[in-house]
Design a binder for these strands. Structure first.
Lengths: 333, 333
DNA sequence: TTGTACGCGTTATCAG
DNA sequence: CTGATAACGCGTACAA
């Protein structure tokens, strides 16, 4: 069932069928109806490959993330997919894992598939050196590259990020205001995002007159269990802390576990602040005070930016979305 | 940069270039090298649309799930993507939400895109009536349909599922063996999977000589917080229970919250068993005893089945994977 | 072993 | 407003 069959059935030429289907140019209402009828009857759908061949696009964007099982990534995938679908774009998903070579290979596969753009979820895709990022710049020569919560300067590279610096600074300042004196920054990887959070952490404690030391930062393992063990070890080594600012909720949950398992009272003896305000924040007892970075808005913004880019509209390369501190049971002694 | 350019550059015809790239037929080693050189130099990649037009496939499978932010779905997406990528298939992801009409529309969009198969994650895609499932049967006339943890009988429809019945039966029997006398089944939706679990629950308690009553089943809200409230309400209404068998970990976490907030000791006064053995199981204190349904194996199995289907191999329509009870701190009084 | 010519199903162009 | 025809880039019989 192709356009020729429909044309024959409707008694018109394929050009007219095409025009009706793409409502391009003007077609008389009468023939329009005849064509639509035929299309309806045969349940005809234009062949996407032939279409792609002509238009050089299949209205598809590639999405790359490290790990879809991370609830934060998962939520982002959901929001992005909804936004794209609303704009008639489909989503090709790649879960790359942490290996840079895999990321590179996957990106080039997406390009070979002629995606119209690539969205990268998380700053884990931004490497430290120009050299390591080169594949991104090269990709940007073919299609727009957008970061969700990341940033990389370059032609045809865009990003939307939450204001991690301000959000963490505000959260830590608040906790210090309730009487905490020994803050700890708990994170799990040296990503760009973690860097911004750390800077906000430092700024907040220095504003409070507490001199910063690298010993106030704890690089934890990858999950709640390991974070808890990490904190226990730190305590054994005479590290004192009465405030844990975690880079994400899972680590904060680890801090809660640490406190519960060591008999430290929350929030009387220790305040804990998570980040992302994911559903994990409501899965522990007490529930987590956490920074909501408005992921939904960020995703919406990324999709908006993308559509404007497709329209050749000039837009700023970076959009910043403010965070918000959600108060629950792990702070406010 | 197309196949003609490469042919010219290598001094051969396009047919030869095509032959080299698809290593079909025999090509003399000399010309082969010349072609590969040209391909390399120009970094030539065949146009996927033209390719699709000829072969009528782009090696893509559609994946449908209700909600990618669910960690269970997310993990499945990860595993499936890895499996497919290893077989040179790409993945088109649809997050449908719960509305049946959306599911139907999204599926037909995938078909219009000429995906080679569709994988549905979770039994939420199987409806109660034939009528409601008709779109699935129709889709199966075009491409194979595979369920991850679901089942629907029909031509060209396949599924891999965990043995929820046995797994729950075993878990509940174990808990009853430790002395629990008032079991409760906590679930959140009347899916097929929940039905199998419930059946296992009933069988276990009847084996233990406890007569089943519908009051032993609690249909909870959608998250941990709501599950906790649900149990509190139940208790107010004089419902007694010292064992909660939850249909997933998030609900089990809700049960833990309920116990912690009401001052009920775990596991002395109440045993709690989760399902999925997701990372949530390690996010609460005490950590959850949970049923691991070997999601990784299930996903691997689905991909294997799919590849065999593509090879026109005859395979059983259903594969069953056994579950396993992982012991942690919420059971064993 | 290699090359020629055609078909795949669209959309775009241009003439009527 | 409509129709004929030329791209689009590839794979593949068939001929050489």
């Amino acid at each position: 069932m192709n356009i020729y069959d429909i044309a024959k059935k409707a008694g018109v030429s394929i050009a007219t069928v095409s025009r009706v289907l793409n409502n391009s140019a003007r077609v008389s209402e009468a023939t329009r109806q005849r064509v639509l009828e035929a299309v309806e009857e045969e349940d005809y759908k234009p062949n996407v490959f032939a279409r792609g061949l002509m238009l050089n696009t299949m209205k598809t964007v590639g999405l790359m993330c490290q790990d879809a099982s991370d609830p934060y990534m998962g939520a982002a995938i959901n929001y992005l997919e909804a936004g794209l679908r609303g704009r008639d774009y489909e989503m090709l998903l790649c879960c790359t894992g942490p290996d840079p070579e895999d990321k590179q290979r996957r990106l080039s596969q997406l390009l070979a598939r002629k995606v119209d753009a690539v969205i990268l979820i998380g700053s884990s895709f931004v490497e430290k050196t120009e050299e390591e990022n080169r594949y991104l710049y090269q990709a940007a020569q073919q299609v727009p590259i957008l970061f969700l919560n990341g940033i990389l300067n370059g032609e045809n590279i865009y990003g939307c990020m939450s204001d991690d610096y301000k959000a963490v600074k505000h959260a830590v300042s608040y906790a210090l205001g309730t009487g905490c004196r020994s803050p700890l920054f708990l994170y799990r990887a040296d990503t760009m995002s973690a860097g911004r959070k750390k800077a906000g952490f430092i700024s907040a404690i220095e504003d409070a007159g507490i001199p910063f030391s690298e010993r106030m930062c704890c690089l934890s393992g990858r999950n709640a269990r390991e974070a808890a063990e990490c904190l226990k070890a730190l305590r054994q080594n005479h590290g004192v802390f009465d405030l844990v600012m975690a880079a994400d909720d899972e680590l904060a949950v680890g801090a809660v576990k640490y406190a519960l398992e060591t008999g430290i009272r929350i929030p009387e003896d220790i305040s804990i602040i998570g980040y992302n305000n994911s559903y994990l924040a409501q899965c522990c007892t007490p529930e987590l005070t956490s920074v909501d970075n408005h992921l939904r808005d960020m995703c919406g913004s990324v999709v908006d930016m993308l559509m404007k880019i497709f329209e050749k509209e000039e837009i700023p390369h970076t959009t910043v979305i403010p965070g918000e501190l959600i108060m629950r049971g792990t702070t406010g002694r």
